[in-house]
Design a protein around this nucleic acid. Sequence first.
DNA 1: AAGTGGTCTAGACCACGCC
DNA 2: GCGTGGTCTAGACCACTTC
Lengths: 231, 231
Amino acid sequence: MREANSWRQIRDEVVRRINERVWQPGALIPNEADLAEEFHCGRTMVNRALRELATAGIVTRKRKAGTRVAINPPHKAVFTIPIIREEVESKGSSYRHSLLIRDQRERPAFLAGAFRVADDTPLIYTETMHFSDNQPYIHEERYTNHVAVPDFADFNLDRISANEWLVQNAPYTGGELSFFAVQADAKLARTFDVAEGYALFATERSTWYQENPITHVRLIYRPGYRMRTSF
Amino acid sequence: MREANSWRQIRDEVVRRINERVWQPGALIPNEADLAEEFHCGRTMVNRALRELATAGIVTRKRKAGTRVAINPPHKAVFTIPIIREEVESKGSSYRHSLLIRDQRERPAFLAGAFRVADDTPLIYTETMHFSDNQPYIHEERYTNHVAVPDFADFNLDRISANEWLVQNAPYTGGELSFFAVQADAKLARTFDVAEGYALFATERSTWYQENPITHVRLIYRPGYRMRTSF
DNA sequence: AAGTGGTCTAGACCACGCC
DNA sequence: GCGTGGTCTAGACCACTTC
């Protein structure tokens, strides 16, 4: 059929046939050897193209059973969590932040599930306001386990935010992320200049390194904020 | 060093060295040929291992410049957008839904950006309530382009929800997803038994096939809902 | 110019899973 | 059993980027 000499062309041609219903959802597509012959290339590159489509959920593959067009389109969206400064600056706005509070606290009750440290382990608590073009943008509350990140306690957070410092210096092996809505309390209402109880978008993120909790952060976004992604 | 004969083992060993700081963030790691020699394998499999790590954002690769440990850990999370019924049932709850409204409307103004059809194209509007264990769970408002999905107009939505039908029958080539917070209006407040103005978590999703809009849906979740993912 | 990753081949053997 | 995808090799040439 069409000449194809790179795995990208093979991949794109397979996608085209799926989109145009040459190969229906659920249908078996030709095996690697046959496709290699059709495209005048080695089986290795057919394998690579189909493997990538399988990772993306476009096809499903089983030994002996062959490769099928996936029945359910992949309802997956990859979401990238940016460093706040970079997010602001990428929109052409100026960024600054202000450290409001920095002290040591014991773990609050609501963190017991996410933060598996002894009840009386002191945690570093920081509260930071992030601004975009000098307008309040994100309010950040963070608990950091300084046993896991000893350098953090001494770090000057005036120039670089906790967000940025931890992203670059505290690698993690796993984490959890959640999205939800909160009502503005009195302080947030004042900060963002809305009525108390106003609906604000919020995220929480926990990260850990092996079994050790590193940090837990709650971000509350300015009124009307939307977090977007495309797929 | 350690014996490794599969690309997975190579990948895991590289990850181990990065996590244990044998190779620091930003540092250059040995080139493919050297790693192939160390692991007693072909360069192809080293390439595959490192390519996968590059896709995951663990390392960055440039010709001639070599492979470096990424400075920023990958702040990526993958969201799977489930069929609502499956989400509810996977938690062991019973699911049902109720179709509240189904009519034809012209495109509302707020959809002009997301829905590139002529202003007077009639769209199918549906409003559905999803229940978990007979408690209100998600309120759904949907606009569907019946030019793109002709079968949808005739479909009986009593047994299968629009959500589920479209996922399985209307493949798409792209889409957009956004997360935000809304205030409950009078109707939502009544539905979810909260005060008017209460903060609710909401998502909007648009999908299209090639250049044709398929559907736009806004989901408003019950009070206190959190959308979670781990990484 | 030279070194690096990116792509590709031809061929091989293996592991899985349907029959 | 036996056909399929999964893995792997040894070698080659190319494209890009830094020098």
